[in-house]
């Protein structure tokens, strides 16, 4: 175990990332993050940092702590120890809605959209303006709002679905809608939990392009299982195992890493 930790923190390996998109500027990191549920350490002493413009993919077998990690970053779960630092500011411990306002957006594993509302309304509610009670009561839908919604919808391939009820969309379209609802908040760190689950190959292809595009100008963390998809989008891959960091590196390095093969890819 200590060997793997060493490997993960090896500064030379950090430097070996050759992706030119990745700027050196670090916007996000977690320090010694741990959480235990009734004595079970779901995430154990984890360190991780993600740069601006970087698309990081987190992989790992079931129960590795991937979703729990995202839960702690966005404030859904409180870490037992350690810190989440975003743009030089500690955000762990803040209420969820304030973490969102700092610029961290979270997509859930199963698509979470408001099924009784139209696609347009789903986007509109997700916009960061008029979130107070009185603001939202006297909120007026103007041309600028329509414009923003149309742009967000076009970005996630839903331009012609605006007036449908979200509940009637296909599974893949719901995934897109939720990604779009995040994008309209203009987050600087985007956390996506299995964004292509349940998508057709064509939808996956489109999503890969979408994710590559949105990573420009912000940081993105994606949890994903499908290694082909991971290779397609990842600038860098982090492997978690039993709540700990097992390895970190480019997709190719990860695929040839004997430790990773042993616990995960080998099966």
């Amino acid at each position: 175990m200590s060997a793997s930790m060493q490997m993960a923190r090896d500064p030379e390996q950090e430097l070996s990332i050759r992706n030119e998109n990745v700027a050196s500027e670090e916007t996000f990191r977690v320090e010694d993050l741990s959480v235990s549920f009734d004595g079970f350490r779901a995430v154990d002493n984890l360190c991780l940092s993600v740069a601006k413009n970087e698309l990081r993919v987190i992989i790992g077998p079931n129960g590795a702590g991937k979703t729990t990690l995202l839960d702690m970053i966005c404030g859904k779960t409180r870490p037992t120890e350690g810190k989440v630092i975003f743009d030089g500011e500690v955000v762990s411990g803040l209420p969820e809605y304030q973490i969102v306002k700092k610029g961290i957006g979270r997509k859930f594993q199963t698509p979470s959209v408001y099924e009784d509302l139209s696609v347009f309304e789903n986007f509109e509610i997700s916009m960061p303006d008029a979130q107070g009670v009185l603001d939202s009561l006297f909120f007026k839908r103007d041309e600028a709002i329509r414009e923003r919604v149309s742009r967000a919808a076009a970005e996630v391939f839903l331009a012609d679905q605006l007036h449908r009820k979200a509940g009637t969309l296909s599974h893949g379209q719901k995934q897109w809608l939720e990604i779009g609802m995040l994008l309209i908040q203009e987050p600087r760190l985007l956390l996506l939990d299995e964004p292509v689950a349940g998508m057709s190959p064509r939808e996956r292809e489109a999503t890969a392009e979408l994710l590559t595009r949105v990573a420009n100008g912000r940081s993105v963390i994606v949890i994903e299982h499908d290694m082909d998809f991971v290779k397609r989008i990842a600038h860098k891959v982090t492997v978690l195992h039993q709540g700990r960091l097992l390895a970190e590196g480019s997709a190719d390095e990860i695929q040839s890493n004997p430790k990773v093969i042993e616990v995960y890819l080998g099966h």
């Binding site: 969820e96 969102v100 509302l117 509109e124 509610i125």
Partner: peptide, 18 residues
């Protein structure tokens, strides 16, 4: 609409900054 959204998916609303 926000109330309907809270009724159906409160977590999503919370993580939209409300």
């Amino acid at each position: 609409k926000i109330l309907i959204a809270i009724r159906d998916k409160e977590d999503r609303v919370r993580f939209s900054g409300y």
